[in-house]
Design a protein around this nucleic acid. Structure first.
Length: 420
DNA sequence: TCTGGGGTCCTAGGACCC
DNA sequence: TCTGGGGTCCTAGGACCC
């Protein structure tokens, strides 16, 4: 059996842990730049605030229903996630951390009654240890565990735990399950499937495999088998190395000057390099993109990217930023108001096996030492304490974050102030 | 006025190899 | 008018996930 444990309204719940007066009240968490709604407490869902809705569109609701609004505080959520995962890993030797707020556990050797009890225990202890409410779905495939989890969340009578034990229960669950809610079936496929009269997950399981394959490739086929109770997707025990790493941001205000974009791109490149060093790898391809604000039909639009192949794969902030800025210089056009920029590195290989070049002009040992020093200083004194010069003072392109909660779990000064 | 960020996988088609 | 067979690699685009 697989159990999918999912934190309820995770970001909203994190904020509540440190502000219990908000229990029972509507709260929402916004994306970067206080852009759109990315998490809602149940109360906020009930009054009709939708996922992904732009913040400026819900202003009326916010005042009318007294909704508490938070900017996203990823450091806090990351830290809380770790606490939840630590607790969960005490319940099974086999765990896959699937996302910031979800984990699959493999559960062996339980009878049905014990399994129910065990699931409820996982739920209780996780909430007790972390303050975060969770729901569990159990079944013999991961896709069905996702279904069960969804039911556990939506139907309060199950107390946060739902188990699909046999074919009978599987079929009855799938008959009442909208096809678009299935893991692996998104908006586009839903549309196609509905067009063919496939409304529920059960309808989907009754289609011929050839037809599914034609419409949705082998991915759809896998989903169908999983829904039939045939496991096709196993637990991933350790996170595989990333094949691409991206850092990008929308700017709080549109920007026209190359100098500003340079500092931003330099910071994004440096961040990508840092992520590469964290997973002990190097990248050989650097891509830079910029674009204007797509929502502003009244303004001239421009969107461009450029890819650079490095002579030797690297994870040095200095080198990656250097190439990124060179690419930016080539694609920048005067006269546009830029809204977003980003850097994507790919062609990733292990830092231990780098193909060197006879004609290399970079002193790699020196770069490496500089990066080690920079990373350890930043780990100790905070991000960007030491940064590369092209990033500038690192302040002026910062995000809008007006409703940010304190760093409850990670900043000593804040911890003290809470105690006081 | 204000609209997020970071990933993965699969397929088709073109270029190329022997 | 006829003109093989069997591959690999790369890229763009489209789907999906949280």
């Amino acid at each position: 059996m697989y159990a999918l444990v999912d934190c309820n309204n995770f970001y909203a719940s994190c904020e509540r842990v440190f502000n219990p007066s908000l229990i029972g009240k509507p709260i929402v968490v916004l994306s970067n730049n206080d852009g759109c709604v990315i998490a809602r407490s149940n109360e906020a869902k009930i009054i009709g605030i939708k996922m992904g809705e732009p913040a400026f569109k819900i202003k009326e609701y916010v005042t009318k229903h007294n909704v508490t609004v938070f900017s996203s505080n990823y450091t806090l959520y990351g830290d809380m996630s770790q606490r939840v995962m630590n607790t969960l890993s005490t319940f099974s030797p086999e765990i896959e951390i699937y996302s910031i707020d979800e984990a699959f556990l493999k559960l062996h050797g339980f009878s049905h009654i014990e399994l129910t009890e065990y699931a409820h225990r996982i739920r209780k202890i996780t909430t007790k240890n972390t303050g975060i409410p969770v729901s569990l779905g159990l079944a013999n495939t991961k896709t069905l565990a996702k279904v069960a989890n969804h039911i556990a969340k939506k139907q309060p009578q199950h107390n946060g735990v739902f188990i699909i034990r046999n074919d009978e229960e599987r079929i009855s669950a799938l008959k009442n399950f909208e096809i678009g809610e299935i893991w692996g079936i998104g908006r586009q496929y839903s549309k196609i499937l509905t067009r063919y009269g496939i409304r529920t997950a059960y309808d989907f399981t009754r289609m011929s495999p050839e037809w599914i394959r034609r419409q949705m490739s082998v991915v759809g086929l896998r989903t169908q088998k999983e829904l039939l109770g045939i496991p096709c997707i196993d637990l991933e025990h350790s996170a595989p190395q990333k094949k691409a790493i991206c850092t990008s941001r929308s700017f709080g205000e549109m920007q026209t000057e190359l100098e500003y974009l340079r500092e931003a791109v330099s910071a994004f490149a440096s961040s990508c390099a840092h992520k590469l060093r964290k997973q002990n790898s190097c990248a050989s391809i650097v891509m830079v993109f910029v674009h204007t604000n797509f929502f502003r039909a009244d303004l001239p639009q421009y969107s461009m990217s450029q890819t650079v192949t490095l002579p030797v794969a690297s994870n040095s902030s200095l080198e990656i930023a250097h190439h990124a800025i060179a690419a930016l210089n080539r694609i920048y056009k005067k006269g546009y108001r830029y809204k977003k920029a980003g850097v994507i590195v790919s062609g990733i290989s292990s830092a231990n096996n780098i193909q060197t070049s006879l004609f290399d002009t970079v002193d790699r040992a020196k770069h490496q030492q500089a990066m080690i020093a920079m990373d350890s200083l930043n780990a100790k004194y905070g991000r960007d304490t030491v940064r590369i010069a092209t990033q500038g003072n690192g302040q002026n392109w910062k995000l809008k974050h007006e409703k940010l909660s304190p760093s409850y779990t990670t900043k000593w000064a804040d911890i003290i102030s809470i105690k006081v």
